[in-house]
Amino acid sequence: MAFVNFKWREQLSKPSFDIFSRSLAAIFGGYLVAATACGLLALALPLPVAESVLTAMMLSFALYAIAALWAFSVKRSRQAWRDLLCISTIFYLLILLLG
């Protein structure tokens, strides 16, 4: 059975997998951070509603860029996933709390 013989552990520690995983973390994890931050800022900024939404949306792309760079600059790809998911979960919980 090829599936059983497939050496998961070895495959997962290959550099090519590391890059693949980081790219996914940067694209999707980064977007998640930006999206939750955008939702949170829209609620939390001390401005009239329409203005805080505008500001939140305008800032979110900078956050996305920072998150993506973060995913590529930490030591391990696992750490990238962990950081980005943690941050977006915190943001999401705060949205639930405020909204």
């Binding site: 930006a34 955008c38 939702g39 509603v49 305008m58 979110s60 792309f61």
Partner: peptide
């Protein structure tokens, strides 16, 4: 580049509208 993202931000980042409106 940045303003390009902003011109279409209602498509890319509608989440502020989702929470606040």
């Amino acid at each position: 580049t940045y303003t390009g993202l902003i011109t279409l931000m209602l498509i890319y980042m509608p989440w502020g509208v989702l929470t606040a409106y």
